[in-house]
Design a protein around this nucleic acid. Sequence first.
DNA 1: CCAGACGTTGTT
DNA 2: GTCTGG
DNA 3: CCAGACGTTGTT
DNA 4: GTCTGG
Length: 230
Amino acid sequence: MCGRYAFFSPAEAVKRTFALDLMPALSPRYNIAPTQSVPALRVAAEGSRTLVMLHWGLVPRWAKERAIGNRMINARSETVAEKPAYRDAFCHRRCLVLADGWYEWQAAPGGKQPWFVRLRDPRPIAFAGLWERWKDPAGGELLESCTIVTTEASESIRRIHDRMPVVLAEQSWDRWMDPAFSDTAALSKTLGPYEAKELQAWQVSRLVNAPKNEGPKLIEAEGSGTAVGA
DNA sequence: CCAGACGTTGTT
DNA sequence: GTCTGG
DNA sequence: CCAGACGTTGTT
DNA sequence: GTCTGG
């Protein structure tokens, strides 16, 4: 699945990769956690790609309080078109959640062992996302939030975990953002990097477990001979 | 009809 | 154990 | 996802 | 808002 990730590529590289007109400089992040504000791409009314900051944890329109979003951090691709919490967003509000890689935790003696997963050929990536607009019925506050779509893990990642985020290949970005696209079955394997040759993973420090920790040391390889061509 | 959930993951 | 917050 | 709190009253 | 369960 995807409950924690990193996004640290420089603004220039992100701007170029995603063909953005404007790209604000963002602090490099190595420990992005649910409830935080995360960078995402949307297609504006006139068709241009826009970078926006969205609250991670989709708050449905009918929610009475924003905390509902705390458990809406992921949406299963297999059921996203039908689930009441996501159905409407799936039909009308797609987005790309920008990242460089993500963390998976594996049960291990002495506690959870974190791994970092990214492309073997390192570059910024896009997770398939949905977004929603919510107005707090108590204070009237407006909030735009998002969730990350997940799928079954590819064979080689399954040694760590059985789910992973939907990583979209460049040629799939516009396809996903088009509401006419509804082939959820295709989300698992055919829209992006999925095979072992495209992904790699390695063990990292348990420092990443605490959301308050930050910095490039969180993705440094730790342990001996633990890297897998995931 | 009204009340209550609306989600995913992992573990047992 | 379970929920909330980051 | 993991970490950390989980409660009330009264006083400062 | 909409669906499920009682």
